[in-house]
Design a binder for these strands. Structure first.
Lengths: 140, 140
DNA sequence: TTACTTGCAAACGTTTTGCACGATT
DNA sequence: AATCGTGCAAAACGTTTGCAAGTAA
């Protein structure tokens, strides 16, 4: 379940990116986190490893990581600016409303639901997005 | 399925709000829309009815309408700033990726899924959020 | 050596706040 | 008449862009 930062770094490299201190710091901060982090939170976390880091590099690295499917956005009621390491394959998120801990779970087969909805609405369904909220084992 | 703007206005009134031209214009613009609208889009739509309207009133009215559960935020990959009339009871959204049309569908029973996930993750599930994307009947 | 990447500063778009005037009740 | 709500202007915020200097390959 844990993220291997070296995998991220080599994915970046394969994509033609150079491995810089700024990128390493951002990747490490994100890959270690069990909570969704906003750009500014990533900035502070990464800055403790690499104090010269600028916020702009955080934005640019996040953009690249999202493009490569290594991080995903987490949606909250008020905004969608937080990022989390993305899982492999089709996974969904469950978030603790109290401590913010995020856990991925395997994408269940929702095909039956989709078929019903497609029939009901006339839509051809392409994508779906499911997030659960609750209390984690430690918080309940 | 259509929204009755008078219901919205009386809900506002019951909540202690005054019925002003600004609020009427915002409510009408939103209640008529089949697409999710950003604050600025609401502003332009409502301004055609009430040209003196200020953008600030749109923000303040949206905030109140969201608080009263009359509108809901729509989440897209890049942000969550668009609003749509909220449905009654437990409903989910399906959005057309091409024209943006939004349709609500009845919340299916996802209890079985939740139980599996709860068991798997140790979470106590409180809320869930499901949005589908695809092509509507007209666009496909 | 070359091209990519960086941090800084400034620009930008969105959302919020302070305030005096105006409107609703 | 008493509040509540408004529009304006300005501030605050998060994010993006232009650029010269620095760094990885």
């Amino acid at each position: 379940m844990s993220i291997n930062k070296d995998d991220w770094l080599s994915t970046l490299q394969v994509d033609g990116c150079r491995l810089t201190s700024a990128r390493r710091a951002v990747v490490e901060a994100l890959a270690e986190s069990t909570h969704a982090l906003t750009p500014v939170e990533v900035f502070y976390a990464a800055r403790s490893r690499y104090p010269v880091l600028g916020l702009v590099s955080v934005y640019r690295t996040l953009e690249k990581l999202e493009e490569l499917g290594l991080v995903q956005r987490v949606h909250h009621s008020k905004g969608c600016q937080a990022f989390l390491p993305a899982g492999q394959g089709h996974q969904h998120l469950i978030l603790c409303s109290r401590c913010g801990k995020a856990v991925l779970f395997e994408g269940e087969d929702l095909a039956a639901l989709f078929q019903t909805v497609a029939h009901q609405t006339g839509f051809e369904i392409k994508e779906h997005w499911l997030q659960l909220y609750g209390l984690c084992a430690d918080c309940k």
